[in-house]
Design a protein around this nucleic acid. Structure first.
Lengths: 211, 211
DNA sequence: TTACGTCGGGACGCAACCGTAGCGTCCTTG
DNA sequence: CAAGGACGCTACGGTTGCGTCCCGACGTAA
C-alpha cells in the first residue's frame, strides 16, 4: 500500500492535497465502517497518508469527524422561490432526493444521526444543522404559501419538515427502495395535501408553539 | 456488578434467567454503544455474567445480535380493522409511536438500520422484517380502504408505508422531537390526505409494480 | 541560501477486545 | 446418590487501535 516510486516529500507547509485526501478518505471510511468502527489508521491507509499527517491537522478522531461533517452539514440549502407551494415542495424533494441519492450520503447520514443520539458533540453539530434545516423549510416554504394564500394563516411550520422530508427519507434511507424521478411529482402532491390538512386542523388541535 | 451474596452456581442445564439477563443487557448495550462498538465483554459485564456464559449460548457477536434482534423484529403487528381508513391509520400511528417511544427502541432501530446497509446478515434479518411490515401496511390498510371505497381501486400499496410511517419516523427517530398524543389525529388525517392524492395520481403516473 | 516544518516510515507503550481454556463449585437430572 | 454440565473466575495469545515520538528527506518561504 506504500508508494513504490519515491513519494514526493513535503515542505514546511501543510499540503492541501493531503488534507483533501484525508477528508475524502474519511467520508469513504465513514460509509464503509460507520462512526463506531471508524479508525484513524484506516483513514490514513485509505488516503495513502501517514497517521502523523492526520494528527498534525486534527487532534483526535472526534475532532476530525466534527470538522469534516460540520463543513458538509453547514451548507445551507438554497430554497428558491418557484412561485407555488407545489413547485417549492417539488424542488425541495428534488434536492433531498439528490442528496440522499449519493451512496456515501445515504450511508453516512443515518449512521451519524444514530450516533448523534449518544454523542453530545455530534448531536450538537448535526442536530443543530438539522434544526436549521427544518426551520428553514417551515418558515420559508410554509411562510410563502401562507402569504400566497395557499395555506391558512397560523399554519404550523413545525409539521412541514415531517410531512415533506419524512416520506422521502424513509423511502431512500430506511427502506432503501430507489425513487424514480417520475414519482417525485406524486410525492410532492401528496405532501402538499398532507400539509393542507395538517394546517387546517391546527385551529382545533393543540397548538404546540414550542419550537 | 457481580452479585454480593454468593451467586448461585450453575447446574447441568442452561439457566433461563441468565439467558434473559444477557438478552436484556445486549439491548441496553446496543443502545448505549451501538452495533459498531458493541463488545461481548461489555454485555457480559452489564448482565453480571461471565463471558463464558454467553459463548455457551451463541457462537459470536453477530450470532447473538441476529438471534435477539430477529426475535424482536419478527413480531407481527396486529393491524386490527377499525372500520375506517382514518381509524386504521390512527391505530397504526399509535403502535409506531409507542414502539419508537421506548428510548431503547428509538436508539437501537436507527442504529441497526444504518448497520444493515453494510452488513448483509443484519440486512437480511432486518430488511426482511421491514419488508413484511411495509407489505402488511400496504396490503391490509390500503386493501381494506379500497374495498370500502375510501381509496380508488388500483391504489399503490407501496406508497402507503412511506406516507404513513415516514413522517412519524422522521419526527421521533431523526429530529427526535417528542410527539404528543394530541397530535396523532392530525398526523393521521394528513397521512390519509396524502394517501388519497398519491393513489388518485397513480393512474397517470408511472406504475411501479416492482415491489 | 538557509532554516523551518511537513512528509512517510517505523516503532513505541497502553488499552480493549476477541474467542478459548482450565479450574473448583454446586445444582439438577436420571 | 452419582454424574454431568453450567456457573464464575482467571488467564491466555493474538489482533487492533490509540496517540506519541524520532528519523532522514526534502521543498518552500524568509
Amino acid at each position: 500500500m506504500t508508494a513504490e516510486k519515491r513519494p514526493p516529500a513535503g515542505a514546511a507547509v501543510l499540503r492541501g492535497e493531503i488534507t483533501t485526501a484525508i477528508r475524502r478518505a474519511l467520508m469513504q471510511e465513514l460509509a464503509a465502517a460507520g462512526y463506531g468502527r471508524l479508525s484513524i489508521e484506516a483513514v490514513a491507509r485509505r488516503a495513502g497518508v501517514s497517521k502523523t499527517a492526520i494528527y498534525r491537522r486534527w487532534s483526535s478522531k472526534l475532532d476530525l469527524v466534527l470538522d469534516v461533517v460540520s463543513a458538509v452539514a453547514g451548507r445551507k440549502l438554497p430554497l428558491l422561490d418557484t412561485g407555488t407551494l407545489d413547485g417549492d415542495v417539488r424542488l425541495l424533494l428534488l434536492v433531498v432526493t439528490g442528496a440522499l441519492g449519493h451512496p456515501l450520503a445515504s450511508q453516512i447520514i443515518p449512521d451519524l444521526l444514530a450516533e448523534a443520539a449518544r454523542n453530545p458533540q455530534i448531536a450538537g453539530t448535526l442536530q443543530g444543522a438539522l434544526n436549521d434545516y427544518q426551520e428553514r423549510i417551515g418558515e420559508i416554504v410554509v411562510g410563502r404559501a401562507v402569504e400566497r394564500g395557499e395555506l391558512p394563516a397560523g399554519a404550523d411550520p413545525r409539521a412541514a419538515a415531517d410531512l415533506i422530508v419524512g416520506p422521502v427519507y424513509w423511502r431512500l434511507a430506511i427502506a432503501r427502495v430507489p425513487l424514480e424521478p417520475a414519482e417525485l411529482p406524486r410525492m410532492a402532491e401528496a405532501a402538499v395535501a398532507a400539509l393542507r390538512v395538517a394546517c387546517a386542523e391546527s385551529d382545533t388541535a393543540v397548538r404546540s408553539s414550542q419550537r
